[in-house]
Amino acid sequence: MKTTITGLYDRYEDAKAAVKALENAGVSSDDISIVTNKANGDVDVEGQGNRAGEGAGTGAGIGAVAGGAGGLLTGLGMLAIPGVGPVVAAGWLAAAAAGAVAGAVAGGAVGGIVGAMIESGVPEEDANFYAESVRRGGSVVTARVEGDHRASAEAILKSSPRVDVAARRASYTEQGWTRFDEAADPYTPEQIAAERDRYRVNRL
């Protein structure tokens, strides 16, 4: 039986490295997802041969989000998520979000991501936290792995500088956060930069 593991990263480059390491270890691209905030300034999907720029407001341009022969990252596409804004994403989690947006379900895009994570075994509290983290400029990598491969896959996710979820959630709570709100305004690039600076200082 497959279980879902998740890694949160402040830098897209770290999340991308985690995805590549999972693929190199034999985890199928179909069982990996990446969702990252486009406004964090790290992500460039131009020139990758996909339709990332199309349908950003509708999800129609997400393209081949399920990975493919070239690996998960070749299927990156862009869509808009209520409360988050534009995200660059690929994989099964992104496909759920794209389907919700394309179906014009009110609030369905975020519900799709949070709901898909919950259905795959991620606690609701954690799913809301990860959605909020993407809103604040983070990158989330998820992988579905067989139970006996969980420890090795977790080690791979930790090989990139992964966010301490408990400490980050405590920081959000101190700021008055309780759960992800899809009706909230997306973070601006300036707010995301300030958020990243806050945690960069905390790591020094």
Results as ranks from 00 to 15, higher is better:
V43K: 11
A60W: 00
E195A: 05
N40D: 10
P86M: 12
V101K: 12
G138P: 01
A151V: 08
G111D: 06
W92R: 13
A183T: 14
T58H: 01
P86R: 01
V84A: 11
Q48E: 12
G55E: 14
V88W: 06
S133G: 12
R169Q: 11
E54H: 14
A127H: 01
R169K: 13
A94Q: 11
S29A: 14
I34N: 04
A90L: 07
S133Y: 13
R179T: 11
R51A: 11
A98Q: 05
A102F: 05
S152D: 15
D185M: 11
N128Y: 09
E195H: 13
D14T: 02
G41W: 09
G41Q: 02
V140R: 06
K2C: 06
G67M: 08
G138D: 03
K16E: 11
V122Y: 13
A89M: 01
G47S: 13
G111Y: 07
L72A: 07
V134M: 02
K158V: 08
L76T: 00
P82R: 14
E174G: 13
A104F: 05
N40M: 08
Y199Q: 06
D42M: 15
S171M: 03
P161K: 07
G53V: 03
A106W: 03
K158Y: 08
P123Q: 10
G121H: 02
V88T: 03
A116Y: 02
G59S: 02
V65F: 15
R200P: 09
E190T: 02
A170R: 10
F129E: 15
F180A: 09
V114Q: 09
D148C: 00
A98K: 05
N128R: 06
S160H: 09
N202C: 05
D164Q: 02
G75P: 15
Q175G: 05
A194S: 14
I118F: 10
R196M: 08
A193S: 06
E119A: 15
P82K: 14
T178R: 14
A18V: 02
A193Q: 07
A21R: 10
G41E: 14
D197P: 01
L22M: 07
A18D: 08
R144T: 05
P86K: 04
